[in-house]
């Protein structure tokens, strides 16, 4: 009997141990690979621009000598592989070049503006989750198995509409209603707690609608699952049934999308900051694209990209932790 029971179980333990180490190793490997791809893409960005970026930046009237001097400054006259090696070395040491418009180190410009963007994105995400999770769970329970058709139709319609309206348009509408018509809230700048309300709402409402709709569908699906019938056969009270048995399973399927929404929010700051004149990275990147301040564009793209990659790592880890059987672990 001992041989019987021990042999397969030892295998299992060893497997699980290995799986986690392998997961961590592979995930780290993928992160490094993605970072490398990101840095390379940022490097190539300047070189893929048709024509001479310096000439484009300085305008057609600039003196040829000035262009040449600036090219030499930026190291653009070196062979491409040499430039690439230099760029990699500089990025690794935290040197992102010098902004042409600010005449400051790019890293300093970014460092000044990053906190504002981060505050905006993270607050908006928290608000979206706080709105979406209870709503989605409640709607899922209410509309399980095709009940309450009217409520479902109303909810789905509203959430589709809210999810469709892009954040910057929502921002414009909110500005008009609460800023212009009612005059309750400030519509621009980064001044006090009140100034957060409109930008955060315009970022959060769309993703909250999407998340709530998805969570409802997941809840409805999970409630129909075989194991929920098992749980009902145990005659458990409704709260235990839905919160302990259904919610974790519905959430694991929602986390991936939640992560995508968070990265989309990071990018969404670009537009919303422009609507609300919020002095952050998004505001800056648009100005630097228009001003053809390529080192700064490069730097900000890198920062946004790293943010997105970090979010992806967090999502994968969260899925792996919450759902021990997830395909995320198994793929690695």
């Amino acid at each position: 009997m001992t041989t019987l029971s021990q042999a397969p179980s030892r295998t299992l333990t060893r497997l699980t141990g290995n799986t986690w180490i392998r997961f961590a190793a592979r995930r780290a490997g993928r992160l490094v690979l993605s970072l490398w791809a990101l840095v390379t893409a940022a490097f190539l960005m300047i070189h893929l621009i048709p024509g001479d970026p310096v000439r484009a930046a300085l305008g057609p009237t600039a003196a040829a000598s000035l262009v040449a001097a600036r090219r030499a400054d930026l190291g653009l006259d070196d062979p491409l592989p040499v430039q690439y090696v230099h760029y990699l070395r500089d990025v690794l040491s935290g040197d992102l070049g010098t902004s042409m418009t600010f005449n400051l180190p790019t890293s300093q410009v970014i460092g000044d503006r990053l906190p504002a963007t981060l505050q905006l994105a993270l607050t908006a995400f928290a608000v979206a989750v706080v709105i979406a999770v209870p709503t989605g769970v409640l709607m899922g329970v209410l509309t399980r198995g095709g009940r309450a058709r009217r409520i479902e139709l109303g909810f789905t319609g509203t959430s589709v509409a809210l999810g469709t309206i892009p954040d910057f348009l929502l921002g414009v509408l909110l500005v008009y209603v609460f800023g212009v018509s009612l005059g309750w809230l400030p519509v621009a700048g980064h001044t006090g707690p009140a100034s957060y309300v409109l930008p955060v709402l315009s970022l959060a409402i769309g993703p909250a609608a999407v998340l709530a709709r998805l969570l409802r569908v997941q809840m409805v699906t999970v409630i129909e699952a075989d194991y929920m019938r098992t749980a009902r056969a145990k005659r458990l009270p409704a709260a235990v049934l839905y919160l302990r048995h259904a919610l974790p399973n519905a959430l694991t399927a929602t986390i991936t999308v939640g992560g995508l929404l968070l990265s989309a929010m990071i990018a969404g700051t670009v537009l919303v900051e422009n609507v609300f004149a919020w002095q952050g990275l998004g505001d800056t990147i648009v100005h630097s694209i228009l001003a053809k301040d390529y080192p700064l564009v490069q730097g900000i793209v890198l920062v946004y990209g790293v943010g997105v990659l970090l979010v992806n790592v967090m999502v994968d880890v969260a899925v792996a932790l919450l759902d021990p059987h997830s395909t995320t672990i198994r793929e690695y």
Binding site: S34, A41, M45, L48, I49, P50, L260, S263, A264, I266, A267, G268, V270, L271, I285, I289, L290, Y294, V297, V301, Y304, G305, V308, L309, N312
Partner: peptide, 17 residues
């Protein structure tokens, strides 16, 4: 893995305004 808007900005730089 990257949001569409970020990619669009990236490509907008390359393809020009």
């Amino acid at each position: 893995a990257f949001p569409g808007l970020l990619l669009a900005l990236f490509f907008a730089v390359i393809f020009g305004v």
